[in-house]
């Protein structure tokens, strides 16, 4: 049922979201995580004499571990509330989505619980990540001619 009066009244009582503030927080936090990642890579390269490719893998694993640990200890969702999407967009968000799903369904068992549900949120990221990688790979192959 359409009711213009209702829409008008309801719109007038809609709370204003602080979008700009959230955006700035997310930008700063996301940027800090990026900087921190770069520091880890530099340390791995300079002090442990790893190649840059190896150091990058180490950095990702480090962030995944930290995000999963904080999720399982119950801190991560509270941090997201403060830091907004700055924590969800980097790889920390991906790890968080998998760990939280696994935690939620652990009581239903290894197969029907964790196995079936761990990709509940991350499934979309993986599927469309793979599809877009393929798509852009093809574009690069045909237009750029680079193998």
């Amino acid at each position: 049922m359409e009711d213009k009066l209702y829409k008008k009244i309801a719109d007038s009582h809609k709370p204003k979201e602080t979008k700009l503030k959230n955006l700035i927080i997310a930008f700063v936090v996301g940027g800090l995580i990026g900087c921190f990642g770069e520091i880890i890579i530099e340390i791995m390269c300079s002090f442990f004499h790893k190649s840059r490719a190896q150091a990058q893998v180490f950095m990702s694993v480090f962030f995944i571990f930290i995000a999963s640990l904080l999720t399982s200890l119950g801190f991560f969702d509270k941090l997201v509330n403060k830091c907004k999407c700055g924590l969800l967009i980097p790889i920390t968000g991906f790890a968080h989505s998998m760990t939280s799903a696994a935690l939620d369904y652990r009581k239903e068992g290894l197969i029907y619980g964790i196995g079936s549900n761990i990709f509940k949120l991350a499934g979309s990221v993986i599927l469309y990540g793979v599809v877009s990688t393929w798509l852009f790979g093809m574009i690069r192959y045909f237009i750029g001619g680079v193998l």
């Binding site: 979201e17 959230n22 999720t71 969702d77 941090l79 509330n81 935690l103 949120l121």
Partner: peptide, 17 residues
């Protein structure tokens, strides 16, 4: 939360409404 929204530990920012 688990049934209608996201996993319980998942922290998705929610609007004030």
């Amino acid at each position: 939360e688990k049934q209608f929204r996201n996993p319980t530990e998942y922290g998705a920012p929610k609007p004030r409404s």
